[in-house]
């Protein structure tokens, strides 16, 4: 039996391997985003820089996640996964490595989205938007935690859908639903009842900033909703990997 340390090492080894394999197409994606961010940072009024960049990033990242999960589905359906399992990875380690790898790219893109404007606009203006007490703004507070949780949440849902269906189309459909369809539907329904907007928090805690003040649940609760959903889907993916994932 492997020790915990060896199990974690296995995940790290495979994570490193996945990242090195899918890095080429994604470097192109990140380079493209960097240009977009730089353009926005240059032309937007300074106090408005971080938020639009982050929102743009949030629009793109489910498609990056879908791209990564498509590679995972390719490995499973082609049988390549068997090579790594035979080499000593368990199904769980394999799936966990992919979940983490899938999160790395959107998080890197998001951090890049913060770093590029910081290098372009004046430090004074950045300080009004970055969360450093006592001058922290609610905007950045929300974004920093909520975006990471949102990425984890969406990745876990899409990995689960990918593993359960093994169909790339379904993963892409999930990306479209999460990014475009669900927010629009919920926004439409919220015109009847504002409280419905809270439903968005289960998949996108970043929308907390869009909630009307009179209805706002506590911020930590908004993140907790999404985190719980993410953990449930992660556990489901692991159970799926352990019990039924055949190559």
């Amino acid at each position: 039996m492997l020790s915990w340390r060896q199990r974690v090492n296995n995940v790290v080894y495979h994570l490193d391997y996945i990242l090195s394999k899918v890095i080429k197409p994604l470097v192109g994606y990140l380079a493209f985003l960097s240009l977009v961010f730089a353009g926005i940072a240059f032309y937007m009024p300074a106090p408005m820089v971080i938020l639009p960049i982050s929102m743009l990033m949030l629009f793109f990242f489910p498609f990056v996640v879908a791209f990564c999960i498509e590679r995972l589905i390719d490995e499973i359906t082609s049988g390549r996964m068997a090579l790594y399992l035979v080499a000593g990875l368990t199904r769980i380690q394999y799936v966990v490595a992919w979940i983490i790898a899938t999160m790395v790219f959107p998080i890197t893109g998001f951090l890049l989205g913060l770093l590029i404007p910081i290098t372009i606009i004046s430090p004074d203006m950045v300080s009004t938007q970055i969360s450093i007490p006592p001058n922290n703004t609610l905007e950045m507070n929300v974004l920093l935690e909520a975006i990471i949780i949102q990425i984890y949440n969406n990745v876990s849902i899409m990995v689960f859908i990918g593993l359960a269906t093994r169909r790339k189309g379904m993963v892409f459909l999930a990306a479209v639903l999460i990014t475009i369809v669900l927010p629009i539907i919920i926004a439409m329904v919220s015109s009847i009842n504002n409280f419905v907007l809270h439903a968005l928090l289960f998949i996108a805690p970043v929308y907390y900033i869009a909630l009307p003040l009179e209805f706002k649940a506590p911020y930590w609760l908004a993140n907790l909703f999404a985190l719980i959903i993410a953990i449930i889907f992660t556990i489901q993916s692991i159970m799926l990997a352990k019990k039924v994932l055949e190559v």
């Binding site: 090579l83 790594y84 080499a87 000593g88 990875l89």
Partner: peptide, 29 residues
């Protein structure tokens, strides 16, 4: 599996990876 070696029927190896990198990864695992 740690006591078994397997050569699959189809050449499923990642074609865009060098021989050394692929074999080193298997060796690490």
């Amino acid at each position: 599996r740690m006591r078994t070696g397997y050569l699959p029927e189809k050449p499923l190896y990642p074609m865009d990876v060098s021989v050394e990198k692929f074999l080193s990864h298997i060796a690490k695992l």
